Amino acid sequence: MTRNNSPSAPAVLALGSINADFQVRIARRPEVSETLIASDFTRLSGGKSANVAWLAARLGVPVRLYGHVGDDDLAEQALAPLRRAGIPLDGVRRVAGQATGVSMITVPPDGKKGIVLAPNANHAWDEAACAALAGAIRGCPPESVLATNGEIPAAALRAAMRAARETGIACLLDPSPADAIGDDLIALADFLAPNAGEAQQLCGFSFDDAQGALRAARALRERGAGVVCVKLADGGCVAWDGGRALHVPPAPVEVVDSTGAGDAFAGALAVALLERRPLEEAVRFAVAASHLAVTGWGSQPAYPGREAIGDMMRRLEARGDAQ
């Protein structure tokens, strides 16, 4: 899948959570104290950064993965698909005495998943690990793109994002969960990509349309972020770069499973930024990938290739032109 993963090649640098996913389908959401029978039990590789790395590899760009797994048997569930995809795993540390992160996912008929996450090894970052991470980022080519998220401690995020800033590496931050993201991290993000709920939490006000999302994007840019991309609940996106607003409206798709759609957006946006695409094209590329991600089961197995993304981009552009 990948091409040229040599240390000298600019790459998508995926930093953050690496999990073992346990996923089931449910007929409806359970009531309090109710035991609900599920179906379609599936064990998968997951985690925000594992998903970003997998999609980048799927799209054929160099990728490096940084994160933690435990020293348990679940580490292989999390890592085996990444290894098969040709993703270098030398930046993944097995933490002694820790369990691998576990994500328990339920998917109802509308496809809008629910997740309970046990971070486990993802949160096991000490000062030495943060320093080693910063050193690794500084050793990467400045044309690389760091794609990270809030599912690791703020200290690790801060170390990596500061090192990226010092090296001239663009940083894309998915601020999920939003309560882990402070103003210092927002100010280090060259690209900030919250979903609507996260944007509302970060800004402290509610909205339910594209104009409200643009207001949130402006507010986050005023707090130091570079380009702000607010992912809308309908699947579209509003972006603000300080000079112009972009709105990519959604196209209708059949939602099978929304797991990993936000990670597909982040991974595709990171790839587009690595390829130096214009902002409007990069955002549409990301929206197209996230649209397609919800049409299959699981996260990584549902991620699309370039041809499918190109087709969806044309659909999105046609809808935008028609509005």
Rank of each mutant, 00 (worst) to 15 (best):
R215V: 01
L292M: 12
A99K: 10
D321K: 15
R25G: 01
R43D: 08
V287G: 01
E281T: 09
G296M: 05
V248N: 08
F265E: 04
G267A: 13
A50Y: 03
P141K: 11
E281M: 06
R28Q: 13
N51W: 14
L82F: 13
R43F: 12
V283A: 01
L82Q: 09
A264H: 03
R223N: 00
A131M: 14
G267I: 07
D263K: 12
N19E: 08
A216T: 02
A189T: 08
A27G: 11
S290G: 11
A180Q: 12
G242R: 10
A124D: 11
M161V: 00
K48G: 01
A239F: 10
A272H: 00
G60V: 02
L172T: 08
V294R: 02
L65I: 12
G97N: 03
P304D: 04
A154L: 07
A187P: 03
I152E: 02
V12R: 13
A56P: 03
A270G: 03
A225D: 09
P88I: 10
Y66L: 06
L214K: 01
M104R: 14
V294A: 05
L59S: 06
A78V: 05
L133W: 07
T295G: 00
Y66V: 00
V255K: 02
M312D: 01
Q323K: 14
P175I: 11
N5S: 02
V228D: 07
A239I: 10
A189E: 07
V145L: 11
V107H: 08
I181M: 09
N5W: 07
V32Y: 12
H247A: 02
G224L: 13
S258K: 02
A289Y: 09
T100H: 11
P250Y: 10
L117A: 15
A199K: 06
A210S: 13
A268R: 07
G86M: 14
E76N: 13
R244T: 04
R83Y: 08
D208F: 05
V69K: 11
D21L: 06
A96Y: 07
D71C: 06
E198D: 07
V271A: 03
A170K: 13
A136M: 14
V63F: 03
Q77V: 12
L220G: 02
E31Y: 07
P252R: 15
A180I: 01
G236V: 01
Q300M: 04
G267N: 11
M104Y: 10
A99G: 13
A189H: 08
D110P: 00
R218P: 00
L269W: 01
S8G: 01
V253H: 12
S258N: 06
A245P: 01
T42I: 13
A85M: 09
L117P: 01
I18L: 15
R276K: 13
V228N: 07
